[in-house]
Design a protein around this nucleic acid. Structure first.
Lengths: 183, 183
DNA sequence: CAGCCTAAAGCTATTTATTTGCGTTAGACC
DNA sequence: GGTCTAACGCAAATAAATAGCTTTAGGCTG
């Protein structure tokens, strides 16, 4: 009997309930107070679980925060359909930048990065959004840059601007998008 | 009498000695063991100071690590002069990528990012390196991209590849450099 | 160059976070 | 229903971080 073929209540049930409870508690705390003051015991108390539960499931605070951040990226759903590939990309980039350029947003991005493993799903999730935009553009038979190029020309510079605290104006984003269309 | 006009032994002397001692101890520990096992009390013991000294001067482990990382960036000195702007940029980018693509290198980059403040001198220091290359190219009356463009087209994608654990081949870097020269 | 003055370091006690071992429970599977 | 185990709760032990107070080094003045 292999480990994976047997196994107890892993996916659903209590575990899921606790995960939701911890996630909610964390998000609420992050709205109330500075990220630097949020601690594992605090989250545990608000979520109604013991700290050791959190340590065992997530390892440490950073990985928990990263987990939550990635989840939030997902729930944002598909990028808006504005009728054209170029404007889709611009709209998406503006929203993305706005979301992460703020103090808290920057902290979230950094949390995602400091979490060790493939938790850097951040890049994958983002890429998938661009793929959706690209697919729509193709359906309409529009010209649209390769996804890799869009990541290099638009996403990478925006992320670096955010991480290294460079100012990020509206025009700057528009320029990046324009550049992406010049193969 | 203003604070800045009086003041005790701030720049030189004991403080400098202790900073050097702590930096050295940290670097040595990082070579011996995993970054995750390095703690402030450990560093303090090896450096022959009390932990509270480190906490007061650097705040926490991340800021100390970031401080050291930036220092190491500096000591690497000017980028090599290979005789032409394009090859200078390529050589620099290859070395940069190699330095940070490794496991420890990635961790260093992440440390620099998680340290709060303008400690993100990482970007500034890097930019200055590109400026040096650009200045040399101008002296030779070569064509060379604007520094901002080089940062966007070469540095930003490389950093994102490293941070998000994308593979980073030699050819990939060469392509990025080539792109940068297509204004 | 002797003495004053203070920023920075030491020391210690206290608080807070993290780890660990062990008993308990929920719920997946037969 | 019964069994079996991953995940949880609880509590004790360890380790890290903070804070108060004392001591020291070394820049500055006279």
């Amino acid at each position: 009997m292999s480990i994976s073929s047997r196994g107890g209540p892993r996916p659903g049930g209590r575990s899921a309930r606790i995960q939701a409870s911890v996630h909610t508690a964390t998000r609420e705390l992050l709205q109330t107070m500075d990220r630097g003051n949020v601690t594992v015991p605090l989250i545990a108390a608000k979520a109604g679980v013991t700290p050791s539960t959190i340590y065992r499931r997530w390892g440490d605070l950073q990985q928990l925060l990263a987990d939550i951040a990635v989840e939030q990226l997902r729930v944002d759903g598909d990028p808006a359909d504005t009728g054209g590939g170029a404007s889709d990309l611009l709209a998406w980039a503006e929203q993305f930048a706005e979301e992460f350029a703020s103090g808290p947003g920057r902290e979230i991005l950094r949390d995602m990065l400091s979490a060790e493993p493939e938790s850097c799903q951040c890049w994958e999730v983002t890429r998938r959004q661009i793929e959706i935009i690209a697919a729509r553009a193709e359906e309409r038979r529009e010209a649209f840059p390769k996804v890799n190029l869009a990541m290099d020309r638009v996403v990478a510079p925006i992320i670096c601007d955010i991480l290294f605290s460079q100012p990020l104006h509206r025009q700057r984003i528009a320029d990046l998008v324009t550049d992406a269309f010049r193969g």
